[in-house]
């Protein structure tokens, strides 16, 4: 569906503001469905993390209920979150200081 020019302007403004503001993060949340080895496997495959880093993040998700798995600009984080939803993980975008 094409955007109207007005919507595009609004979105561009938002992107400019975001680029200058606090970085954003991708958070993966614990859920009762996904297996620990699946979560770690997704982190290795998608983000390219080492087995040790993927396991560390997976255990954070498991034990603390959430883990920050990436940070950067808002658009990148939305792309990561969409990918995580594609894998069936519970993930969300937030400001880094939130």
């Amino acid at each position: 569906m094409p955007d109207t020019l007005e919507q595009m302007d609004t979105r561009l403004e938002g992107q400019l503001r975001d680029a200058l503001a606090t970085p954003w993060v991708t958070i993966v949340w614990n859920d009762p469905v996904n297996l620990m080895n699946y979560v770690a496997f997704v982190f290795r495959s998608y983000f390219g993390y080492s087995a040790a880093e993927a396991d560390r993040l997976m255990l954070l998700v498991h034990n603390e209920g959430r883990a920050t798995v990436a940070s950067g600009n808002r658009e990148q984080m939305e792309r990561h979150v969409a990918a995580m939803h594609g894998y069936g993980l519970q993930a969300s975008v937030a400001r880094e200081d939130a």
């Binding site: 859920d31 469905v33 979150v81 939803h85 969300s92 937030a94 939130a98």
Partner: peptide
């Protein structure tokens, strides 16, 4: 809500 969770929680 599990298959398509909210991308922003707040």
């Amino acid at each position: 809500t599990r298959l398509f969770p909210p991308a922003y929680r707040d």
